[in-house]
Design a protein around this nucleic acid. Structure first.
Lengths: 197, 197
DNA sequence: ATCAAAGCAAGCATGCTTGCTTGTTTCCAC
DNA sequence: GTGGAAACAAGCAAGCATGCTTGCTTTGAT
């Protein structure tokens, strides 16, 4: 396929193909969130996407290819969800940020991180993309919170807040403790409010 | 085996047996931290423990039995590490608490959580033990920090701090960013110091 | 309308993990 | 020391996931 095709490189392709590819990626993410890494076999993903396993293997020759693409897909989705956060008062912003870490996207990302920590092939890509999303998250958080990063400690305060959100999301993996989370968020929103002046 | 043996139920057994069992559990935890859940096959664990696979299967008839026991072992180890924390000034206590979330024990526990979130058999036990360890962690943190939980918000402040530690540990899974962590910990220690009065 | 290429479906072969079963060694009690 | 049970080692069969190969269908261009 690598040969030089006419000017229009490879983008146009076929609509059906792009749709199938999209469905496969969505199914991969959903499976990741629901049955984890080991459970997300290509057969399972293909079934969920409503295509045959052969079709899946056509788009992504190897399982690694599929989930490498899924990693980027998740990163893009999370980035998009992030950019769509509305600007509100600080307490609401903190709550909204934390909410980003309790949805299926975060669950999928979490499974991906843990899997990547032991899959040599996945690790670099996940690490790179996560760093990128992390930086973007920090930037947007600073903006939404109206934080002045020139003041000492402010940067670390925001970073810690995001780390806390990650930790809350992790705690949410096993037990859905929304009530506790809400109290913690409220308290720390106040503390952050205080720290940011 | 279930028949009523003499008064001394089943404890004494044989020393070698207990040693082997111990080695298997340690190996299971180490493998969990190093090669993750899917990679921790009983063959791998047995090899690491220096025993044959048959011996492993003798002590733990099924893979599930092995890791169910490993879950409790990890919980006990984490609990013990927790109780051994020295009493110091608040900044040092915060740093020490966070350190609990960056070692191999936490890595193993993390893999266990993620695996348990999709393994019906493991999930209840992990959830239960994690809740127990979580409560103990909170209790000890409160004591070491000299926090007065009767004051409103104090409980949530400590919980949030522990959630942040979890988040830092999670971030540490892929990239070892000790430098960033240190800065965040310093800042948050100050915030906590402030909030606790 | 036709033709070539891409998308898609199904079957096959390989490798790996698990659990069981059989055989050998070590330990404790009598 | 002998007997018996537990601990350990090794081999075997079944199940499953991956990757490959083959053949059919749809698409888009000529």
């Amino acid at each position: 396929m690598g040969v030089v095709t006419p000017p229009t490189a490879k983008a146009p392709k076929q609509d059906r193909s792009r749709a199938t590819r999209q469905r496969l990626l969505e199914a991969a993410v959903a499976c990741l969130a629901e049955v984890g890494w080991a459970g997300s076999t290509v057969t399972v993903v293909a079934e969920r996407a409503g295509v045959s396993r052969g079709a899946a293997q056509h788009h992504f020759p190897t399982r690694e290819d599929l989930f490498t693409a899924a990693v980027e897909y998740v990163a893009e989705e999370r980035s998009q969800a992030l950019r769509e956060l509305p600007s509100q008062n600080r307490a609401a912003v903190v709550a909204a940020l934390v909410d980003l870490y309790t949805g299926p996207l975060f669950r999928a990302a979490l499974h991906l991180w843990v899997a990547a920590s032991n899959e040599e092939q996945l690790r670099p890509r996940v690490t790179e993309l996560e760093a990128k999303v992390g930086r973007e998250t920090h930037r947007i958080a600073v903006r939404l919170l109206g934080a002045d990063e020139s003041r000492p400690g402010v940067r670390e305060t925001v970073q810690g807040l995001l780390d806390m959100a990650r930790g809350l999301g992790l705690a949410n993996l096993l037990t859905d403790d929304a009530a506790r989370r809400q109290r913690v968020v409220a308290q720390w929103a106040a503390l952050v409010e205080n720290a940011l002046g």
